[in-house]
Nucleic acid binder design. Structure first.
Length: 809
DNA sequence: CCAGTCGCTATTTTT
DNA sequence: TAGCGACTGG
């Protein structure tokens, strides 16, 4: 046990409250505060509950909150955890200094804080985080320098290789020493050039955040000790998704003298292997910390027996796993409904119909689900479009979990590029993006000249621009020279320093740096850069939208500013935090601590680290659409999973490799176990990918689901001979024929796709459900009938697809 | 210097 | 299909 606080048991009544309604295993995990603890938490086993209560328990035990560090993978998870802890503790002051954040955000903050003393190969505290686009630009530059063509060395794949290396903590030198063929040696050169480019731009990529932090903690005892002194209780969520760099960071933060480290995860939900996540981290935890206590939470409180049974059966097909029993005492529920569809449009229609029916049906809690309780999952983003269209036509509200889209918009990206240049004068990539946007007479020719000159003189582009405008740089025409001078002056104006000095570091006491709020700076940049003007000139709808988005960016900055609390900023020390006013007391607290430029950097950092799942807002009354990856950690009463086909789930890139196949199966497992009450899974006979319609084969995962928990219904009208009927061989054409859904709104009778008239009382035969009697009909574009079947009871059928056969009438 | 068009090609998941 | 790069005409 570390020196310092002895743990005192909290008063009994408090403890009782905290542990109320918990299982023995859950309570044990909450009470186990000292030493290493591994919680193997199956889906729906109350994991988040355990973590949040454990944090509260620690605080009740007298541990100062600022000594507790909880790490997650997404901002959303961190936010939720923080809120839930605050809720339990009742007041914010009780949680003062508690750190709940993501790995990446923590690393960014630590790097900023210790940049100076750790000497991060030239990186200073003002660094920016490069996104994928920036990385691509940079890698292209590197390739150009090395005279390599982007067709032989595809930026995407090169970046992937570099990223893999970084995830394994292999730096450029090591990579070079390991290279044993031409390819490897070239890659090593590209890697080195890319790193050089990053450092020159005072930039890091996502992987660097982890790599540099791991390196810093490993090599710099002062930093390491500083961190260990502060954080004595470490908790890590989704531990199965940690990669080597994260593993090392965790181990170094924890220290090796019986650390208080609690990791929570589920090997069966590891779905980030492609990002370097290593299940061995969680599987070998007990080897790493021999004294570790292991607690397994297997009981599922979320889903019905059918869902859990199917999920359990499916995941047993994985061989590389540690088996853990999944069970629930929840109701049996309904079987999982697997539906075979004709094509993606048919699939989308059936899913939407299914959701609509669920909307009007009571679930186990006796309440009909709202749209917000429903979700549609898919393997790849491209699959979402058709479902979106179908939902839109039906007027069903939906949201797509794609948090990054806002910041990816052209106009927002441009504004952010301006801000990044303001925040970091060395960022040539961003500067290149905006220097002539809007057009201000600094074209490719001029820029090329200055870039070359800057290269020769070992200067950053902005510096070279400054000298050129002052007449000490390149020979250029007077027109261009004026344009450049104006530009430089503008940017310097925003920085509030002219000429730029290297000394505008993040300072805690830099009160002289205060000059207006972040939001007003953003507003100024949007207006003075000419971006706003540029889009105002256009009169199209998209232009108007762009103006609105720029306004939205300003409000997002304002919001960030008002929520910013130096207390929750790991950069700000404990001592500092103690003297800080309480959160929300003083809006200028953050600004006073780090200055407008510091705030700007913090804002840009947040923007860089938003993730798709951060966009999920359960308070919106809408169906949520998201990838299976984004679905992890969430739950919905009603779930539809689409695209259960070979080459999609499992993905085509994966088919041969058994290890990756198992990850695809885990992905499927994650999807299934998100559903509380009802689950539909669809597979299409044909699917159009990139404009090409191709035959698809139902996913092997469907075959792996046990029949006792699953009902399969083939709605594809497809048999061994091909497509039924005489319409066409092409499913798309068949669909466009209208499918025959009658538009008649006649009461009591309706015409189906085969021209049969159906009315109440008529007897029909259905290929799956057998013989039944029509109990009601609904006209309209998607005419449907409720049919009471002998075997299966009342079903609502969409006539367009139902293939009903008239028996009498 | 700029904007628009043509043609080619790549296909996952995301902090 | 879409997104990007190269090319061309104003």
């Amino acid at each position: 046990m570390p020196t310092g606080q002895r743990t005192n048991e909290p008063p009994d009544e408090t403890t009782e409250d905290l542990l109320a309604g918990m299982t023995e295993a859950q309570a044990k995990a909450v009470r186990h505060t000292e030493g290493a603890l591994l919680v193997l938490a199956g889906p729906g086993s109350g994991k988040t509950r355990v973590i949040t209560r454990r944090i509260a328990f620690l605080v009740y035990c007298g541990i100062p909150p600022w000594q507790i560090l909880a790490l997650t993978f997404t901002n959303k998870a961190a936010k939720e955890m923080r809120e839930r802890v605050l809720h339990i503790l009742g007041e914010q002051a009780a949680a003062r200094g508690l750190t709940v954040t993501t790995f990446h955000a923590l690393c960014a903050r630590l790097l900023r804080k210790y940049a100076t003393i750790a000497g991060l190969s030239g990186l200073d505290a003002n660094f920016v985080i490069y996104d994928t686009d920036d990385q691509t630009t940079l890698i292209k530059k590197a390739l150009e320098e090395l005279n390599l063509s982007t067709s032989n060395w595809q930026p995407r794949s090169v970046l992937g290789r570099i990223s893999n290396a970084k995830n394994e903590l292999v730096d450029a030198e090591t990579f070079a020493s390991m290279a044993d063929d031409f390819n490897g040696r070239m890659l090593a050169k590209i890697y080195a050039a890319y790193q050089k480019g990053l450092r020159a731009a005072n930039a890091v990529d996502f992987d660097d955040l982890l790599v540099l932090t791991a390196k810093m903690l490993k090599t710099n005892a002062e930093v390491r000790e500083d961190c260990r002194r502060r954080w004595r209780y470490l908790m890590i969520d989704e531990y199965q998704d940690t990669n080597k760099a994260q593993f090392v960071i965790a181990a170094l933060l924890a220290g090796d003298k019986d650390p208080n480290i609690c990791v929570v995860g589920d090997p069966d939900q590891s779905i980030y292997g492609w990002r370097g996540a290593d299940i061995a981290n969680i599987l070998d935890f007990e080897k790493q910390y021999p004294k570790a206590v292991v607690i397994a939470l297997g009981e599922n409180f979320r889903s019905t027996k059918h869902i859990i049974g199917a999920a359990d059966h499916l995941i047993r097909n994985n061989t590389l796993r540690k088996h853990k029993d999944l069970f629930t005492s929840n109701a049996m529920g309904e079987k999982i409904e697997v539906t075979i569809c004709r094509d993606e449009h048919h699939e989308a229609d059936l899913v939407v119909d299914w959701l609509k029916i669920r909307k009007g049906e009571a679930l186990r809690a006796d309440e009909a689900p709202a749209w917000k309780d429903m979700a549609v999952f898919y393997r790849t983003n491209a699959l979402s479009r058709v479902v979106e269209d179908a939902l839109r036509t039906e007027g069903i509200p939906y949201i797509i979990a794609r948090g990054t889209t806002f910041y990816q918009r052209e106009e927002v990206k441009r504004a952010l590029a301006y801000l990044r240049v303001v925040a970091n004068a060395a960022d040539d990539v961003s500067l290149g993006r905006i220097i002539n946007m809007p057009a201000r007479g600094i074209g490719d020719t001029t820029l090329g000249k200055i870039e070359a000159w800057a290269g020769e003189h070992n200067l950053r582009l902005f510096e070279a621009l400054g000298r050129t405008s002052a007449g000490h740089g390149v020979e250029i025409g007077p027109k261009a020279a004026t344009a450049i001078a104006k530009f430089v002056q503008m940017v310097d104006g925003w920085r509030g320093v002219a000429p730029p000095t290297p000394k505008d570091h993040l300072t805690l006491e830099g009160a002289e740096e205060i000059r207006g709020s972040l939001a007003s700076l953003v507003e100024r940049v949007v207006a003075e850069s000419g971006l706003e003007q540029m889009y105002r000139k256009g009169r199209t709808e998209t232009d108007e939208e762009r103006i609105e988005n720029l306004a939205e960016l300003v409000s997002s900055a304002a919001e960030f500013e008002s929520n910013y609390s130096p207390e929750s900023d790991p950069v700000v020390d404990v001592a500092m935090a103690a003297t800080m006013p309480a959160v929300g007391d003083d809006r200028s607290a953050g600004e006073a601590a780090i200055g407008t430029l510091g705030l700007l950097r913090a804002y840009l950092e947040r923007v860089s680290l938003v993730s798709d799942s951060d966009a999920i807002d359960p308070t919106q009354g809408a169906v949520t659409l998201m990838t299976l990856h984004a679905a992890k950690g969430l739950e919905f009463a009603v779930v539809a999973m689409i695209g259960l086909e070979e080459r999609i789930l499992p993905h085509s890139r994966v088919q041969e490799n058994p290890k990756e196949l198992e990850e695809e199966r885990r992905l499927c497992f994650v999807g299934i176990t998100r559903a509380m009450d009802r689950l539909m899974m669809t597979s299409s006979r044909y699917r159009t990918v990139r404009g090409l319609t191709e035959r698809a084969i139902a996913s092997r995962f469907i075959d792996e689901l046990p029949r006792e928990h699953v009902s399969i219904s083939d709605q594809s009208e497809w048999n061994e001979a091909g497509w039924d009927g005489d319409r066409s061989d092409r499913p798309a054409a068949a669909r466009r024929g209208g499918g025959g859904g009658s538009d008649s709104t006649s009461r009591g009778s309706v015409t189906d796709s085969r021209g049969q008239r159906l009315s109440v009382g008529v007897r029909v035969r259905h290929p799956q459900f057998g013989i039944g009697e029509v109990v009601s009909v609904n006209g309209g574009v998607d005419a449907r009938a409720q049919v009471k079947f002998r075997e299966v009871g009342i079903k609502t059928l969409v006539l367009q697809y139902a293939r009903l056969e008239l028996i009498s009438g």
